[in-house]
Amino acid sequence: MQIFVKTLTGKTITLEVEPSDTIENVKAKIQDKEGIPPDQQRLIFAGKQLEDGRTLSDYNIQKESTSHLVLR
């Protein structure tokens, strides 16, 4: 499924993911596309910070959901 990640600069990154993917996996995909190390990434969805060990389905992130990327 596709999800979108919006950066603070207003850029939207499109990612191909599975509901069973962990947040860690998603951060690795963002690193592949954008070159941002996962330890600098914070992903926010529905006002919550997403934890590495959880999956997209844990957070009820469905296709075409948009989460926000904040850099630390």
Rank of each mutant, 00 (worst) to 15 (best):
M1T: 04
M1I: 11
Q2Y: 13
I3W: 02
I3G: 00
F4K: 09
F4S: 07
F4I: 11
V5T: 01
V5F: 06
K6M: 12
K6S: 09
K6D: 08
T7Q: 06
L8I: 12
L8A: 13
L8T: 13
T9V: 08
T9A: 12
T9W: 14
K11P: 04
T12K: 07
T12I: 15
T12E: 06
I13S: 01
T14N: 06
T14M: 13
T14C: 11
L15Y: 02
L15G: 00
E16V: 13
V17E: 00
V17C: 08
E18W: 12
P19W: 08
P19I: 07
P19Y: 07
D21T: 10
D21N: 06
T22P: 05
T22G: 03
T22Y: 07
T22L: 11
I23N: 01
E24S: 12
N25M: 15
N25E: 12
N25V: 14
N25C: 11
V26K: 00
V26Q: 00
V26D: 00
V26C: 03
V26E: 00
K27G: 01
A28L: 14
A28R: 15
K29L: 10
K29I: 06
Q31N: 09
Q31E: 09
Q31M: 12
K33N: 05
K33M: 11
K33G: 04
K33I: 14
E34L: 15
G35H: 07
G35P: 02
G35W: 03
G35K: 06
G35S: 05
I36D: 02
I36H: 07
P37Y: 05
P37L: 07
P37H: 11
D39R: 10
D39L: 08
D39I: 09
Q40M: 11
Q41I: 11
Q41S: 04
Q41C: 06
Q41M: 13
R42A: 10
L43C: 01
L43N: 00
L43H: 00
F45H: 11
F45L: 08
F45I: 04
A46N: 15
A46C: 10
G47D: 06
G47H: 04
K48R: 11
Q49R: 09
Q49I: 15
Q49Y: 13
Q49H: 10
L50M: 12
E51P: 02
E51C: 09
E51W: 05
D52C: 05
D52R: 03
D52G: 06
D52F: 03
G53F: 12
R54F: 13
T55L: 09
L56S: 00
L56P: 01
L56R: 00
L56Y: 01
Y59Q: 03
Y59M: 03
Y59L: 06
N60V: 04
I61N: 02
Q62N: 14
Q62K: 11
Q62P: 10
Q62D: 14
K63M: 11
K63E: 12
K63D: 12
K63A: 15
E64I: 12
E64T: 10
S65T: 12
S65I: 09
S65V: 09
S65G: 10
T66N: 11
S67A: 15
H68W: 15
H68F: 15
H68Q: 11
H68M: 13
L69Q: 02
L69P: 02
L69R: 02
V70P: 02
V70H: 14
V70C: 10
R72H: 14
R72T: 14
R72M: 15
R72E: 15
R72W: 15
